[in-house]
């Protein structure tokens, strides 16, 4: 079992990945700050039978931020994910554009944040947002307000932002009270696609 795990996970993680990340210089347009990055991964899988599977994965992350006033901030993050892999297994599949161009465009985060909202010590954030609790990375039992995103297992620990209203009242710099309301009845975790080779 251990051997299988090593074959399936450790080897691809340690040997089968080459990454380039290109960051675009932050720029400002009409009061909107624009920044982002393009991640290009060349991944491949080496198994016991020396079968090699190419699995290129690219991700474009675009962030927009605007501060219309001192106490209001608007933030949007768009994510375009592209699995550079032809999924067509028969000629019939060629009629499906998604088979040849498996990409996914998502509104990753989009929220408005009001500082000193009603009360001086109250900050209020509404919209699709990442709510991080605790300080540990990757394995963090307290960071459970956003569902896990396993769609790319090599990016273990990623969370899916969810639609919520988030009010934080600062009693002091050390202590704060946080009230959260999730708009969705359920926010399931994301799993890897059927084409995921690992």
């Amino acid at each position: 079992m251990v051997r299988i795990l090593v074959s399936l996970y450790i080897i691809p993680i340690l040997l089968g990945m080459s990454r380039s990340t290109i960051y675009c210089a932050p720029t400002s347009m009409g009061g909107v700050d624009i920044s982002g990055n393009l991640k290009l991964d060349k991944r491949f899988l080496v198994t016991d039978s020396v079968r090699i599977a190419d699995y290129p994965y690219h991700e474009l992350d675009l962030k927009l931020k605007s501060n219309p006033s001192e106490n209001l901030s608007l933030y949007t993050s768009l994510k375009l994910r592209l699995w550079d892999q032809n999924l067509a297994s028969s000629s019939a599949d060629l009629t499906e554009i998604s088979s040849n161009n498996p990409y996914e465009l998502s509104l990753w985060e989009a929220y408005a944040e009001l500082y000193s909202f009603v009360f001086d010590k109250l900050d209020f954030r509404i919209g699709k947002q990442r709510i991080a609790w605790g300080t540990a990375d990757k394995i963090n039992p307290t960071d459970n307000l956003n569902p896990d995103d396993f769609s790319d297992p090599l990016n273990f620990g990623e969370k899916v932002p969810t639609e919520a209203a988030n009010a934080t009242y600062y009693l002091s710099d050390e202590y704060s009270l946080q009230r959260l309301y999730g708009f969705r009845h359920s926010s399931p975790s994301c799993c890897p696609g059927a084409n995921f080779p690992y």
């Binding site: 990340t21 960051y23 675009c24 210089a25 932050p26 920044s35 982002g36 990055n37």
Partner: peptide, 8 residues
């Protein structure tokens, strides 16, 4: 940090 994007 204001720029570049990777540390903004």
């Amino acid at each position: 940090f204001l720029s570049p994007a990777d540390v903004k």
